[in-house]
Deep mutational scan, measured.
Amino acid sequence: MQNSHSGVNQLGGVFVNGRPLPDSTRQKIVELAHSGARPCDISRILQVSNGCVSKILGRYYETGSIRPRAIGGSKPRVATPEVVSKIAQYKRECPSIFAWEIRDRLLSEGVCTNDNIPSVSSINRVLRNLASEKQQMGADGMYDKLRMLNGQTGSWGTRPGWYPGTSVPGQPTQDGCQQQEGGGENTNSISSNGEDSDEAQMRLQLKRKLQRNRTSFTQEQIEALEKEFERTHYPDVFARERLAAKIDLPEARIQVWFSNRRAKWRREEKLRNQRRQASNTPSHIPISSSFSTSVYQPIPQPTTPVSSFTSGSMLGRTDTALTNTYSALPPMPSFTMANNLPMQPPVPSQTSSYSCMLPTSPSVNGRSYDTYTPPHMQTHMNSQPMGTSGTTSTGLISPGVSVPVQVPGSEPDMSQYWPRLQ
């Protein structure tokens, strides 16, 4: 039975679970980093996980050691009161100082060594604690504590007292930064006198190289990059290397530039699409467009005044059976039934097929058609009795279509119309 579990990581490298990497692998990681390889490249070359490479390099940059820390136990506290007071002093002298600059000053002034120097995250935590204590304490208590930490007896009751030896409130920041720059020169002199001055200088240079600022491109470089971006948004590694040799930039910087440029292009394309949609959409909808001609068919113009009344309900007709019959029939052209047409008796099958359309009241044959006459024609229609054979009435077949029909004066039988409509 094995005491430890061995495995293979996602890159194909072998590791022992819970145990640190061998010293030979750690040394190779540092050597590759000094030669300029990126952590992701080191991870692929040595088949070590990216997190492990970053952790080893980060500890090497901070402490200069590649040895693993002790497994188990607690780390001794490195942010001692003396170190905290120095950090507060540096922050007062130059409020814009960075944590890694404070760390360098602690090393250069001999406050800490490589073994007990606090990390950048520890210094940031100390600065946050100082800021929170400043908010919790009152103004007087804060000034007393700062005077105690600074070891001075001057008056701290006013704002300019934060910067000793100065009279203009805006000047101390520059003086403090100048003092810090002077301390940086002392850093070089002190570290050069040490035993491991060369190694420390190499480590600091490598650290500065990794902690780079934003790349500033010249106009020629920007023009070359934009020209390549117009050709393709995704250049391959050969195109990037050719462009890197042409404009004297690292291939990694060119790759990052193209990634950022593609993101910018997507944002601009989104804005262009929004403007295009806004320009195509009308600002207001016309009133006429809300009524579609496919839904509402136009009603033909009436030929006679009587045809303006298109349904039985508008003429005072309360018989719903006839109203439904007229509205359900398709529109037909106007025609006239003459008196000489043969009077065919209704076929029983045809009569039964339209039995649902006729009223059940037996008085329908005896009703006159003056009910369908509009009010303004009552006088004219009353002067001509319906009993004469020459009287013409208008029957409504569908809305908007008038059918003048000659009705025999002897017997106005409704059943004569249905064979004609089939």
Rank of each mutant, 00 (worst) to 15 (best):
Gln2Asn: 14
Gln2Glu: 11
Gln2Thr: 13
Asn3Arg: 14
Ser4Asp: 11
His5Asn: 12
Ser6Met: 15
Gly7Val: 07
Val8Lys: 07
Val8Asn: 05
Gly12Val: 00
Gly12Ile: 03
Gly13Ala: 01
Gly13Cys: 01
Phe15Lys: 03
Val16Cys: 10
Val16Met: 15
Asn17Asp: 04
Asn17Cys: 14
Asn17Met: 15
Asn17Ala: 15
Gly18Ser: 01
Gly18Lys: 02
Pro20Asp: 00
Leu21Val: 02
Leu21Trp: 01
Asp23Val: 13
Thr25Tyr: 06
Arg26Thr: 01
Arg26Gln: 02
Arg26Asp: 02
Gln27Arg: 13
Ile29His: 04
Val30Gly: 03
Val30Tyr: 01
Val30Glu: 01
Glu31Leu: 08
Ala33Arg: 14
Ala33Cys: 06
His34Ala: 14
His34Asn: 14
His34Phe: 10
His34Asp: 07
Arg38Ala: 06
Arg38Ile: 04
Arg38Tyr: 04
Pro39Ala: 11
Pro39Glu: 04
Pro39Thr: 08
Cys40Ser: 11
Arg44Val: 05
Arg44Gln: 06
Arg44Ile: 04
Ile45Asn: 08
Gln47His: 04
Gln47Thr: 04
Val48Ala: 04
Ser49Trp: 04
Asn50Asp: 03
Gly51Arg: 03
Gly51Tyr: 01
Cys52Phe: 02
Cys52Tyr: 02
Ser54His: 11
Gly58Ile: 15
Tyr60His: 01
Tyr60Thr: 06
Tyr61Cys: 07
Tyr61Pro: 03
Tyr61Val: 14
Thr63Trp: 01
Thr63Cys: 05
Gly64Ala: 04
Ile66Glu: 02
Ile66Lys: 00
Pro68Asn: 03
Ala70Pro: 14
Ala70Thr: 10
Gly72Ile: 02
Gly73Asp: 01
Ser74Gln: 05
Ser74Lys: 07
Val78Phe: 03
Thr80Gln: 03
Glu82Gly: 09
Val83Pro: 02
Val84Met: 06
Ser85Leu: 09
Lys86Ile: 06
Tyr90Gly: 03
Tyr90Phe: 14
Tyr90Asp: 03
Pro95Leu: 08
Ser96Arg: 14
Ser96His: 12
Ile97Lys: 15
Ile97Val: 15
Phe98Arg: 14
Ala99Val: 03
Trp100Thr: 07
Trp100Ile: 06
Ile102Met: 14
Arg103Asp: 02
Arg103Cys: 06
Arg103Ser: 06
Leu107Phe: 12
Leu107Lys: 15
Leu107Val: 11
Leu107Gly: 15
Gly110Gln: 14
Cys112Asp: 09
Cys112Phe: 04
Asp115Glu: 12
Asn116Trp: 07
Ile117Phe: 13
Ile117Ser: 12
Pro118Leu: 08
Val120Thr: 14
Val120Pro: 15
Ser121Asn: 00
Ser121Ile: 01
Ser121Phe: 02
Ser122Ile: 04
Ser122Thr: 15
Ser122Asn: 02
Ser122Ala: 00
Val126Tyr: 05
Val126Cys: 09
Val126Ala: 11
Leu127His: 15
Arg128His: 04
Arg128Asn: 00
Asn129Ile: 08
Leu130Asn: 11
Leu130Ser: 13
Ala131Cys: 09
Ala131Asn: 08
Ser132Thr: 12
Glu133Met: 11
Glu133Arg: 14
Lys134Cys: 11
Lys134Glu: 09
Gln135Leu: 11
Gln135Phe: 11
Met137Ala: 13
Ala139His: 11
Gly141Cys: 12
Gly141Lys: 10
Met142Trp: 13
Tyr143Cys: 12
Tyr143Gly: 11
Leu146Gln: 14
Leu146Thr: 15
Leu146Ser: 13
Leu146Cys: 10
Leu146Trp: 14
Leu149Glu: 15
Leu149Ser: 15
Asn150Met: 06
